[in-house]
Nucleic acid binder design. Sequence first.
DNA 1: TATGAATGAGTCTTCATTCAT
DNA 2: GATGAATGAAGACTCATTCAT
Lengths: 195, 195, 195, 195
Amino acid sequence: MSEERTRAPRDPAGRKKAIELAAAELIAHEGTKKLTHRRVAERAGVPLGSTTQYFSSIDELRHAGLAVLAQQVGEDYEGMFRRIREQGGTADAFANELVAYLADMKQVNADAAFVAAAVHDPAIRALYRSACEFAIAQCVPFMSETQARAFVIYLDGLTVDACLLDNPARPDDVRFAVHAIMGAALDDGGCNLQP
Amino acid sequence: MSEERTRAPRDPAGRKKAIELAAAELIAHEGTKKLTHRRVAERAGVPLGSTTQYFSSIDELRHAGLAVLAQQVGEDYEGMFRRIREQGGTADAFANELVAYLADMKQVNADAAFVAAAVHDPAIRALYRSACEFAIAQCVPFMSETQARAFVIYLDGLTVDACLLDNPARPDDVRFAVHAIMGAALDDGGCNLQP
Amino acid sequence: MSEERTRAPRDPAGRKKAIELAAAELIAHEGTKKLTHRRVAERAGVPLGSTTQYFSSIDELRHAGLAVLAQQVGEDYEGMFRRIREQGGTADAFANELVAYLADMKQVNADAAFVAAAVHDPAIRALYRSACEFAIAQCVPFMSETQARAFVIYLDGLTVDACLLDNPARPDDVRFAVHAIMGAALDDGGCNLQP
Amino acid sequence: MSEERTRAPRDPAGRKKAIELAAAELIAHEGTKKLTHRRVAERAGVPLGSTTQYFSSIDELRHAGLAVLAQQVGEDYEGMFRRIREQGGTADAFANELVAYLADMKQVNADAAFVAAAVHDPAIRALYRSACEFAIAQCVPFMSETQARAFVIYLDGLTVDACLLDNPARPDDVRFAVHAIMGAALDDGGCNLQP
DNA sequence: TATGAATGAGTCTTCATTCAT
DNA sequence: GATGAATGAAGACTCATTCAT
């Protein structure tokens, strides 16, 4: 037999990170319900025992995975707002970035998975809250707080609906909504408005 | 033995309904992860066997519960739009009803639980889509389709955030957003807007 | 294949009893440390799942087994004291019955296992206490309470030592001790006494 | 990295002793069931690896801890009998020392833990036997062998009951029993005896 | 038909043990 | 040697599902 089980070299930090990432990916793809030690171990390419070595319970492992997701969401937001600033913070800049964000279904799904996990987990809700507050803070240089809150709520709805509906918001829809919220006139004259 | 097994009275439809309702309540409160036959049976006040008698698997039972939730969401929407129509379909009418909706956390949580379940379940996504389409259809008599889609996305964001954030949207915020989307001037002159 | 798994007929009471008895036997033979669901199931001749069907935790299962042991100890005591009464409650009667008790190593070992389990388990200590109180109450018609307490302590020491030592107390030793405690003169003149 | 791994100073004998003592303490407090490498290492203040370095298996570690307990019991006995000899070896001397012994619950519990471990472990039984034989040998200068055996059995019963019962033997009870076994008249005339 | 006992698949968790560093 | 990361064997526990009654 060539069953030469060779033990993995020591690398606690890398091991833990690999497990967290595997958990995050699984949560993004299938939700927290199907997160088991076995599946995480398999995806991370580590033996079952390693998943319990670094996380004292499945709850902790799940939260670690969700924290990774939260981190990713935060980084996505940072990048998005940086690019918005670089474009001058105009309504068009906001709209462009929202559209670009929605085009990346991987990102959208991870975000939606995070929301779904937060609904029944207070600890995750705290992370979600932080992300929202961050987003609002990023908006205020370019609009009032009221507008910022409206924008973020719209963004959250956009994320959820992009994940849940086959026919997500069209670019024009996004442009319209952003301009409406930010109080900016649309170039095309707002032809779609109410009669 | 003179132990007379007292059987439940014949009422298959009522019993099935009771089970579905119990499942819906559990999902609304704790999510689909903790939905088990035993808990549903206990909450419904029926014997364990009934939950397997009427539903051939736990998946089916869960979907039945989610269908009830979808139904409730639909009814909530119907009521909301009926009242909006009764108020003339003005932006204020829309805003008033949104505020009233957000005040009922039970309804909001059930709605958010439904969204959370839909994220990783295609069958439930279809139900969600129907609800959205219904809402859009109800809006169009009073605004353009683009506006309706923006409104519904905002509504969905509102629902999720009301569930997830301690500090949900304030009535004034809602009024502002609805007027912005519907293109109606606010009475107060939009004093909160960016200079 | 003749792998025709035939499901056992329904018999909740019998099933539970069989599991408890198996647990009690295992405890008597090997102590509580080696009591596992698997071993209990095997010894009871039931599938693994049955052991968790009737006992919500391994602690409960262990306590059930120990309760059976306590029950047996109680019955042994009852029989012993009944026979002592039938013999007139004399010191010789007590001594005879102690000797007979010590001759039954199965009984002695079960008793010692019970003591061992009680040392680190307060719940079991309560059962042990009851057994002691019962024994004292049975003695008092024939001796003072002080004597009864001395007798029961001697009995407990006897049980432990009979289990732990290869060379347990000899009948003559028992006769001597019982007569000493009960204040009765030995027929043989107490030839073994201190010079 | 400048992370200097600070190694423990070279003191294999002291370290091994520390581990044995920690194991003994854990056994005395919670029994052998909860004895794990990690807990021993933590209590001993040594790294996990040391517990496997000096003891090739958990069984060996447990036995080492029990040997320490046996050693302590032996030393306790030695001290007790030395003091008894210093008091002249009278029945009162024996009684006094038993009462003093029972007052030290730490000692009593350690002793009882040792007994509990011996019930299902032949190797430990041998240590227990030695302790008993030692105690008997210490008694014979002051009484017959029969009396000595009765005394030791009473002592063992006393130990177990002191550990297991809330209401352990009272000093007067002990004095009575010791005088009865040693054939010495009580000063108070045995007023508690049966009429 | 209605019920819940019976069963086993699968999950979480603990921990002894090995062995790279 | 000394250390603790790596690993898997095994135990506790949950629960969907089947099916005798």
